[in-house]
Nucleic acid binder design. Structure first.
Lengths: 219, 219
DNA sequence: GTCTATAAACAGATAGAC
DNA sequence: GTCTATCTGTTTATAGAC
């Protein structure tokens, strides 16, 4: 119970210090897994990248796999909320503009390329180990939830019919976003920076379409 | 020059036999890399999956990496054309229906899950090794080209403005498709099978929208 | 709690038999 | 041209010093 001196002078108890090490190792793991992949990253690399030894790593995590899984679950609750925050800050203006700027910001910066790569690693791991899928389910729902705010605003602006589901639309917007970012990493010359904004305008303008057929046809 | 009997009875010359082995190894590599990932698949696994030994593999490929790269380039010219073929067969009907059925077909079958996983592996590899990106560029352009046919048909049907680029639209449709398939693998309960068709209708119905602003607003 | 040293298993790649 | 056997380096994970 009582550990040494009653008052904590250095503001870092032993357990806090360990938690800090844990977090540094998690961050290093995120970097390393993103840059080298799950199979390509060695635990020694991760530990060194965090400034520790493999011994310290194994003192905090049972195995390489468990470290990866922890990362997968942790990221579900952490980073994703950043999307919503960024959007909140811009919510005053045109929601489509806000979404488009989000794309430009995340698509080309290296930091977020890492994030995209890490997400791809997560997806591949979960596809191969279905037990790990639930973490991705949570992650995806957080992303969709983070979008529904702007989506709803945009829907009002464009006078979308009441029977259009905001979450379904958010799912579609997320799909477009991720798909375009991935393609832009491959062939930036052919995936222009504002293609996303253009697509959003098309999409929202078409929400009024009711039937499965073109409005009028010369048949 | 003259090998044994002048006429080839068995229809397999030695070079043909080697080419056959090569192809079997490539197919096995595609399966194994898809199922275990680049780092997770061992050359012994690949060779055994093809019914050969590692010696045979290294007789045909310089290294594991070169095998992977060959696969990456080969798939660019092969499988992708299948997309266009499937679409051609359905072209008579509603183009949107054709695209939607394509999604249903590819999204849930395991064979195509493998293909999606393999593509994700390609993407990750190329993001980390930019020299390999050109293969993906070709792959992406083939995919887009394979789509432009149906897209153009659908554009006519929906009376899209002339200034809408069919290839850009194909890029967007491809992004939506890939994004939705990936999300559906994560959370099928929340990504319904016909959400893709619905999105396509929204998208095509909205092509008429010209400006960056909603058509009319209660401001 | 973290480090050093090491055990044990496995990887990619090669050499020589056939 | 393919297989068996093996070499070499690296990997995950652990044990014990501090």
């Amino acid at each position: 119970m009582n550990d040494g001196d009653g008052v904590q002078r250095r503001r870092l108890t032993r357990t806090e210090a360990k938690a800090r090490t844990r977090q540094q190792l998690l961050d290093a793991a995120a970097r390393t897994f993103a840059q080298k992949g799950y199979g390509g990253a060695s635990v020694e690399e991760i530990a060194e990248s965090a400034g520790y030894s493999t011994g310290a790593l194994y003192s905090n995590f049972a195995s390489k796999e468990q470290l990866f899984l922890e990362l997968m679950s942790a990221r579900a609750s952490r980073r994703i909320t950043a999307v919503a925050e960024i959007l909140e800050g811009e919510d005053a203006g045109d929601p489509i503009e806000a979404l488009a700027r989000l794309m430009e910001r995340t698509a080309d910066r290296n930091q977020d390329t890492d994030l995209m790569a890490l997400r791809a690693e997560f997806w591949l791991y979960a596809v191969r180990n279905p037990d790990a899928m639930e973490a991705l389910v949570a992650q995806r729902r957080d992303q969709v939830d983070g979008l529904t705010g702007v989506i709803s605003t945009a829907m009002e602006r464009w006078g979308a019919p009441a029977d259009v589901s905001a979450t379904e639309l958010a799912t579609v917007v997320l799909a477009m976003f991720q798909g375009l970012v991935r393609q832009r990493r491959i062939d930036p010359a052919r995936v222009s920076g504002d293609l996303f904004a253009q697509s959003l305008r098309w999409l929202f303008a078409g929400l009024g379409a009711t039937g499965p057929e073109p409005p009028e046809r010369a048949r």
